[in-house]
């Protein structure tokens, strides 16, 4: 798509319009004479806070710490989910063995593990990555299992009658047929990673974006809190966009591709 096409797309225009509307309403409210800037800081303050934290190096180090945790937790959690999900979804024996366990543990919000993890491992990097890993694993594994169980039987039969072994069917049919589910699992896991990251940093961290939020609250620096919220939103948005690109590439065969 050419730049001109993108700019003239109705979808983009309306998207920009809605964001601009929120922005303008916010500006209008903060410009009212009786607005309390300590509760609703004007945009100029938020931008100033951004540059202050950027120049002091606080923002980049917080961003670095958070992105590291997200990446580690997301990568380990989804990889485990892929392995476990494939086994559970493909082998009946393993399913009967492991599925009740997953179903029992699944409704527990990952944040509920924070106290026990702190007791066991202390407040350190490992604990925070572990919580994100658990969160990513739990949401992703369910999708991988669903994907494996929804492989159309006719594809499995077609491959078998052409002489494919059970493992060949798994590799050449089940995995690609389950890809749409697996990718969805990864995308949901990314969202879960952000949620648990901020929560774990709010509770127990000396750095990271969640810590910056907490610090802003403690010193009543609402502009800093607002700034970090926008940064988190931006990062999560960019990551999701990258993911959609990967999805579009992997799903070029699909009717339902984006």
């Amino acid at each position: 798509m050419k730049v001109v096409d993108i700019l003239s797309s109705r979808r983009l225009q309306l998207g920009v319009l809605s964001i601009a509307a929120v922005f303008l309403v916010y500006m209008w409210i903060t410009n009212q004479p009786d607005n309390n800037p300590a509760l609703l800081p004007p945009i100029s303050d938020i931008v100033a806070s951004f540059f202050t934290n950027l120049n002091s190096g606080n923002l980049l180090s917080a961003l670095g710490a958070s992105l590291f945790r997200i990446t580690m937790g997301f990568f380990i959690g989804t990889t485990l989910a892929l392995i476990v999900g494939c086994m559970v979804g493909w082998y009946k024996t393993i399913e009967y063995l492991v599925d009740p366990l997953i179903e029992a543990v699944r409704p527990i919000p990952p944040l509920a593990y924070i106290p026990i993890i702190i007791i066991w491992f202390g407040i350190d990097e490992f604990s925070r990555v572990l919580i994100i890993t658990i969160a990513c694993f739990m949401v992703c594994v369910v999708n991988v299992i669903a994907g494996m169980k929804n492989v159309p039987q006719v594809y499995v039969d077609a491959a078998s009658t052409m002489g494919a072994s059970r493992f060949q069917v798994f590799r050449t049919v089940a995995i690609p047929a389950a890809t749409p589910f697996i990718i969805t699992g990864y995308r949901i896991a990314l969202g879960a990673a952000w949620t648990t990251l901020v929560a774990s940093e709010l509770l127990a961290a000396q750095n990271g974006l969640g810590f910056l939020l907490q610090e802003g609250r403690r010193y009543f620096a609402t502009d800093q809190v607002m700034m970090v919220i926008v940064i988190i939103g931006g990062c999560a948005f960019i990551m999701d966009r990258i993911f959609r690109r990967i999805q579009a590439y992997l799903m070029q065969w699909s009717e339902a591709r984006e």
Partner: peptide, 19 residues
Amino acid sequence: GTDRRRGMVFQQDAVFPWM
């Protein structure tokens, strides 16, 4: 069991959409 000596064409669409 199945093997390649007996090939089958199915009523449903069995073409692998990812290939």
